[in-house]
Amino acid sequence: MAAVTAPAAGTASAAAEGRRDRRSRRNRTRWIGVAFVAPAALYLLVFQLVPVLYGVALSLTEYSPLSRGAPRPVGLANYAALLDDPEFGQALLVTGRYVLMVLPLTVAIALGLALLANRPFRGVGAFRSALYVPHIVSLTVVSMVWLWMYSPDGLFNEWLTGLGLPEQRWLLQEDSALAAASAMRVWKALGSNMVLLLAGLQGIPRELYEAASMDGAGAWNRFRYVTLPGLRPMLTYVVAMDIVYLAQGFAEIYVLTQGGPLGSTTTVNYLIYTEAFQYNSFGSASAMAFVLFALIVSFSGLAVRGISGRKS
């Protein structure tokens, strides 16, 4: 290990030594960076990237896992078939709409809750935990409760009837099914978003608020000029994470609507699952997956750039 020598200013040789020093420090930094990253990176390269590359290869073939033969290479045929597959086109639109319906709402509500729960008071831990509950209850289990709440005799219609309003067919109508599924997802995503934003809020230095207060900034201005900029890195992460996960929405759709009515809730990942495990067509399922992948990466990349500004 190279010990850091104090710069002995005054002589040319010492200055040169100092430069060399800094340079070797940078080298050391670089290697130490690699060492920090290596365990996680190697693991991911092997257990995450290899399966992905395998998927890329499969997307250029026709392959059923049940088949005894090797995958049959078909070039870009699977991708070409997607181009004029109206079902896939509609699934892309549905997925996009789903992300747009859930993302802003869940981030806004989570931010509000995080701000409320950021203040220390006796029992705040209980509130935080309670708000986190949706994220940890088994999705399948809780979907059954939502399914019932949305059913003709369910809780929501009970409330509507109580208010003297007409009953709704929440999950059974083309124009409301996706919104109904989104509502459940907003609920489910609240906890994780809130926890992240809470962690972000905790990182904002209090003296910034002090300074702002001394300058006479009101609550709104403190939020606008201290909280939001300070929260930016975490907000970036939250939005990117939501895009990545929401765009792969599947389980809630599977339980609530099976993609219906009239395909109005068939997301791309729902198609992929069906194609892969119901129809055993791994080639076309993989092709769909990589189109989805490209879109997720570009959109979350755009979002990251948009929110984080100078940082990318």
Binding site: L44, V52, I272, V297
Partner: peptide, 17 residues
């Protein structure tokens, strides 16, 4: 590269894994 692997649906990576 590492982070983008999170954007691949599990259906596709399940069998290779």
């Amino acid at each position: 590269g590492l982070v983008s692997t999170a954007a691949i649906p599990v259906s596709v990576t399940l069998i290779p894994l």
